[in-house]
Design a protein around this nucleic acid. Sequence first.
DNA 1: GGTTGTTAGTTACATTTTCAACTATTACCA
DNA 2: TGGTAATAGTTGAAAATGTAACTAACAACC
Lengths: 144, 144
Amino acid sequence: MTQKDDFDLREFLPYLLNQAAEISSQSFQRIYKGRYGMLRTEWRVLFHLAIYERMTAKDICEKAIMHKTKVSRAVQRLEQRRYLQRKPDEKDRRHEWLTLTSQGRAVYEDLRAHAQQHDQVLMQKLSTEEITVLRRALNALSQP
Amino acid sequence: MTQKDDFDLREFLPYLLNQAAEISSQSFQRIYKGRYGMLRTEWRVLFHLAIYERMTAKDICEKAIMHKTKVSRAVQRLEQRRYLQRKPDEKDRRHEWLTLTSQGRAVYEDLRAHAQQHDQVLMQKLSTEEITVLRRALNALSQP
DNA sequence: GGTTGTTAGTTACATTTTCAACTATTACCA
DNA sequence: TGGTAATAGTTGAAAATGTAACTAACAACC
């Protein structure tokens, strides 16, 4: 198993990004899955609603860059657990406004605390300068 | 939909990493999926075999940080398409040595060219300094 | 030498995701 | 006004993934 090719996978950005994303997500996954049986799609929706307070599923699709079926199903499960409420828009009944319940907000507060703590741990692997550049670069790469 | 919370998702590394990974993978995905009907797991295995020439499934699991069932299934599909061959180890028949066929290498060469081109496009969004720091940071974050 | 433990890899089943088709509502425009 | 197009969101079937249990081969130890 000796390297032969001049092409190095560890320089290929999509590969590197996936690797880093996968590994750095794992320990946070254990938290939201272990404590609340949630999926990745679900914590994302929950966090978006906590941060923006009031969104339609469409808004979430755009902000979180998630497919509408993913969002739809995440919303269903969060509703079943009474973490969010739906209210149809009066003027355009195709839209549904989503907001967290107090229960949902409580879950968010708990997860957010863990998220921030988790982020601290990750950042310990990097210098402050690296963190700044990394965030900037990741944001740039997130523009489609 | 106005931001309320002081916690910013766009600073949470696992989120940012996932977003960037997702988006930057998409156009490469169109290529390996469109041209060869391959999955992400499959191009990864293919690339590893091209680069390291001869590996067992276990080796690939470790290098690529993929679960053994993923690797097992990717190997099956690559074998069906005649992109790789298996040879049991003579001394320890639990091991199987995997190597690409010439067909598999041809597919790799094609995909590699596209990968490099795709990487160029991605890197245009960044300065050379950002690229250096990004790669270093991603490698650091990829250590579990 | 036979029992027990380990390792490489596969398979079966449950859970998630994807893709396409669907409903319901509003917009557009002749 | 009526008919077609567009939009928000849901659903069902197929594909992919995760988890755990499994087989086969070897190792170790008494």
